[in-house]
Amino acid sequence: MKVDENQKSYYPWYSSQQGNCIVLFAALFAVIGKDKLNPGLVGLSVSYALLVTMSLNWMVRMTSDLESNIVAVERVKEYSETKTEAPWEVEDKKPSPDWPSQGKVEFRDYSVRYREGLDLVLKNLTLSVRGGEKIGIVGRTGAGKSSMTLCLFRLLEAAGGEITIDGVKISEIGLHDLRSKLTIIHTVLFSGNLRMNLDPFEKYSDAEVWNALELSHLNKFVSNQPAKLEMECSEGGENLSVGQRQLVCLARALLRKTRILILDEATAAIDLETDDLIQSTIRTQFEDCTVFTIAHRLNTIMDYTRVLVLDKGQVAEFDTPAKLLSQRGIFYGMAKDAGLAQ
């Protein structure tokens, strides 16, 4: 019975593959015109009908293969036409080795778009952040929070205005000189061992690495692994939980400890208790650093120096959390929705 059921489906499929309709019509027309056709011509038409079927199958397969492989050509064309990044280093504009010493960040009439022809995502942004301030960045989806942090790394180039860090225009220095002085905590891991992910350039001792793991509350997990610091991380850190990946990235930031720290959804996948521990670590270990936090949990930034509220790419509010709550504006509404204000 099962074989019969299988044949009910398989036979029509196989018939369609062999082009039975073409053969049927070739034979039908031969019968209709039997008075005008000789038997040899009829046989030739039927045999050719069978060959055409195979050719059609081959043609369809080759067409689909061509369509799949032409993507590689399209990608090469796109990459060859993509504008390259700015120079890695600009010798005559190199900042001093101890730059930035204060961590003062200024946006002056700054605008940016993702590419030519698109609308501005940040529009005439003007603000000044003193060294050591803790700034919480909030706003609705699409307000420009992540775009603002990308601009600090010059992943997006300015459409107008400028950003300065300790008086140095970041658009004039090399990308390596800029990016090596900034740290972002984001869940990006590479295939390799844990130590390579924490210290890819082997600048720090094992003791420093373990200290960073302890401060990021990962030391117990790593200590319980047979390979310790040599434990393997799969591509993207898939053998770790999302929360553990974020803790690894926090440990990496603690090792580098640059003057400016950026947190983009750094603790979004961690339970509240662990989040509190991490926030306390950031407050103590990065006490003298300028911190920009894109906040998805408002309670994590309620004790920050100031809160920046973005709306449609512009500064809507920028003041201390207490003053913004008293103004009963956008931030007050968000805090009320989160149950942090009456």
Rank of each mutant, 00 (worst) to 15 (best):
R297N: 15
E317D: 05
T320D: 00
V71L: 07
A143Q: 04
L263Q: 05
T82F: 02
G192T: 02
D264H: 04
A86C: 11
V138A: 03
I22M: 05
D199P: 13
G167H: 03
I185C: 11
K323E: 14
Y10R: 05
I294V: 05
G192K: 00
K257Y: 06
V168E: 02
A207N: 10
E91R: 12
D303G: 09
A158R: 08
Q285C: 10
E5L: 00
G313V: 01
T63H: 12
L194E: 05
E172P: 10
M59G: 15
L254R: 02
V73C: 15
M148P: 04
E85G: 10
S15Q: 14
L150F: 13
R283I: 04
L28T: 06
L198Q: 10
V23A: 05
T274P: 15
Q17N: 14
V112C: 10
N224D: 15
Y14A: 14
G40R: 12
V209S: 09
G333N: 14
V209C: 07
K220V: 00
N211A: 12
R75W: 01
S191Y: 01
D264W: 07
G167E: 06
Q102Y: 05
E157R: 05
R179Y: 03
L298C: 01
S241T: 14
Q342K: 02
L247H: 00
Q285T: 11
D311Q: 13
L277W: 04
C151M: 12
L56P: 10
V46L: 15
G136E: 00
A72M: 08
S234E: 14
I270P: 07
E235S: 07
Q246L: 03
L324D: 01
S216T: 10
G333L: 00
A268H: 11
M231E: 11
Q285S: 12
I165K: 07
C21Q: 11
I22Q: 09
V71D: 01
V129S: 03
S216V: 00
I170M: 08
R113C: 14
I135C: 12
S80V: 05
Y110A: 07
K145F: 02
E317N: 08
M302A: 05
L50E: 13
V90E: 10
S111Q: 04
F286N: 10
V307Y: 02
K36F: 13
V315G: 13
S146L: 01
G160I: 01
R130L: 03
V23I: 14
A251I: 06
L277D: 14
S101I: 07
L298E: 03
I32W: 10
E238P: 12
L66Q: 06
